[in-house]
Amino acid sequence: MISFPNAKINLGLSVIACRDDGFHNIETLFYPVPLFDILELVKSSDIKTKFTRSGIEVASDFDSDLCMRALNLLKKDFEIPPLKIHLHKNIPPGAGLGGGSSDGAFMIKMLNEYFELGLTEQQMENYAGILGSDCPFFIRNHPRFAKGKGNEFEDVNIDLSGYFLLIIKPPFSISTKEAYESIKPSKSQVNLYKLSELPVSQWQGKMVNDFETVVFKKHPILSEIKSNLYELGAVFALMSGSGTAIYGIFKHEINPHHHFPGFFCHSAWLT
């Protein structure tokens, strides 16, 4: 069985407050985008599961990879035989694009289908929530307003079909832990849910990402990338998640490699 875990972007992100459990309350809009890893699994005749990776290098060891953590989580409740699992990484880690979270969530969905476990979407979201705060989003995988730790959802009517997406990431990353340690939570001055009802052309200056203030201060090149995207004609640009990927939404197609040499670049029409 093969699947294609996709990335997400954040259309605004507000860090509201610290929680007693060590996490933060946030408000954000998740939007799935067409940048895909490739995840494959088959039954194995070996006595142990074998997990391999290729593509963009990931710092984590195999046991802590969210694919393996998802497998081990479900094995606590279901009889799952040894597997051969291969993950090809196209989504850069440490970018705020949710690649690892998507891989873990898609592993849950694949195991549920492959072994006919009979899990509902809500049950799969519950398992995904154990793996990470934004993992549950990728179970249903459509635009949603998120609050709490990022795992309490409401559907939103956002459709970016017909826009051209450009994602730029410089050759360095920021850990989520580092980003949250640097930010001072504060009550949001905007209502992201209401802002999602506005046309994209009115988002600039209204939809904000609270992490930009602290992350741009440490890495000014990110602010320059965002400014360059607007200069190239983006109708909206923002850093995704806690960084370091910056995306631009355009009405026209653009070749990124001429403008951002040496950076990770991904572009696609949204459908």
Results as ranks from 00 to 15, higher is better:
1 M>K: 09
5 P>S: 03
8 K>R: 08
9 I>P: 03
14 S>N: 13
18 C>E: 15
22 G>R: 06
23 F>D: 04
25 N>I: 04
32 P>E: 07
33 V>N: 02
34 P>L: 06
34 P>M: 07
42 V>H: 14
42 V>C: 12
46 D>Y: 12
48 K>H: 12
48 K>Y: 10
52 T>C: 06
53 R>N: 01
54 S>Q: 06
58 V>C: 08
59 A>P: 05
64 S>T: 12
66 L>G: 01
66 L>P: 01
67 C>R: 01
70 A>H: 00
74 L>D: 00
80 I>A: 02
81 P>D: 03
97 L>N: 02
102 S>R: 01
104 G>N: 05
113 E>V: 09
114 Y>H: 15
124 M>W: 07
125 E>Q: 15
130 I>F: 13
130 I>G: 12
134 D>I: 07
136 P>T: 15
138 F>Q: 10
141 N>L: 13
141 N>V: 09
142 H>Y: 13
147 K>D: 10
152 E>V: 15
156 V>T: 11
157 N>C: 12
163 Y>V: 08
166 L>C: 12
167 I>Q: 03
168 I>G: 05
169 K>Q: 10
170 P>G: 08
174 I>Y: 03
186 S>L: 13
188 S>W: 07
190 V>L: 09
191 N>V: 05
200 V>G: 08
203 W>N: 03
206 K>D: 08
213 T>Y: 13
215 V>K: 03
216 F>G: 06
218 K>A: 15
223 S>T: 07
225 I>P: 04
227 S>N: 14
230 Y>N: 07
230 Y>A: 12
233 G>F: 08
246 I>P: 04
249 I>F: 09
252 H>W: 12
257 H>N: 15
262 G>R: 10
262 G>H: 09
264 F>C: 12
265 C>A: 14
270 L>S: 07
